[in-house]
Simulated assay, not measured.
Amino acid sequence: MKKQGFTLIELMVVIVIMGILAAVAVPKLFGMIAKSKASEVGPAAGTYVKLQDAYVAESGVYVGNWKTIGYNMPGSNNFTYAEKDLTANTTTLAGLSAKVGWKATNNSKLNDCVKDSEWDISISEAGTDDASKGSPIAYSATTPSKSGDDDTSDCAALTPNFTKIGK
C-alpha cells in the first residue's frame, strides 16, 4: 500500500519560510498603517487653503477664521484640528505676517512620530514672488521635525507633500 502526504521535514521548511515572510511583512504593514492614518492631514489642509483663497478673492482685503470661510473641522480619531492665531472673524490682509490659521495634532504615536506633534499652516501677505502668481496671500506649511537630542519624532516621512500645500 502506497502512503501519500508530507514529511515532517517538508512541513517544517514551509513553516520556516512563512515565518521569514511574516517577519519581513509585519514591520512594513505597521509603517503603512501609520502612513494611511497621517494621510488625512493633507486633504484637510488643502481644503482649508482653497476655502481661504476663495474668501480672500471675494473680500479682497480680509483673511477669515474657520467659521467665516466655511471650513468644518474633519471628524477624526487620529488627529485633533484647531485654529490658532486667526480666531477673530476677519483679519486684515495688509501686513499679515506668519499667522497660524490651521493646526493638526496627532492623538497617538504614529511610527517614529511622537504623540501630540503638530502640523501647521501659516498665512502671510504675499511677497513679490507669490503676488506674481496671482495670489494675495502666501502659505507656509510646517511638519513636526526631529526634536533635539532624542531624534525620535520623524513625522515628515508620513506626509512628504504637506510642505507643498498652498504653493
Rank of each mutant, 00 (worst) to 15 (best):
K2A: 06
L11F: 11
V13W: 08
V14K: 06
I20Y: 11
L21P: 03
A22C: 11
A23T: 12
V24F: 07
V24P: 02
A25D: 04
V26I: 15
P27R: 09
K28F: 09
L29G: 12
F30W: 10
M32H: 13
A34P: 00
A34N: 09
K35D: 13
K35A: 15
S36M: 09
S36R: 10
K37C: 02
S39V: 10
S39T: 10
A44K: 01
T47M: 11
Y55I: 01
A57N: 05
A57H: 03
A57Q: 08
V63S: 00
V63L: 02
W66I: 00
I69L: 01
Y71G: 02
Y71Q: 04
N77T: 15
K84H: 14
D85A: 04
T87D: 08
T87N: 11
A88M: 07
A88P: 00
T91Y: 12
L93K: 00
A94Y: 03
A94G: 02
G95I: 01
L96D: 02
L96E: 02
V100M: 11
W102D: 03
A104R: 03
A104S: 01
T105K: 14
N107Y: 09
S108D: 13
K109A: 04
N111M: 14
C113G: 03
V114L: 13
E118K: 13
W119D: 01
E125C: 01
S132A: 13
S132L: 12
K133I: 00
I137S: 04
Y139K: 05
S140L: 14
A141R: 08
T142L: 13
T142V: 13
P144L: 05
D151A: 11
T152Y: 05
S153Q: 08
D154W: 07
C155M: 07
C155A: 06
T159K: 14
N161P: 03
N161E: 12
K164P: 05
K167T: 04
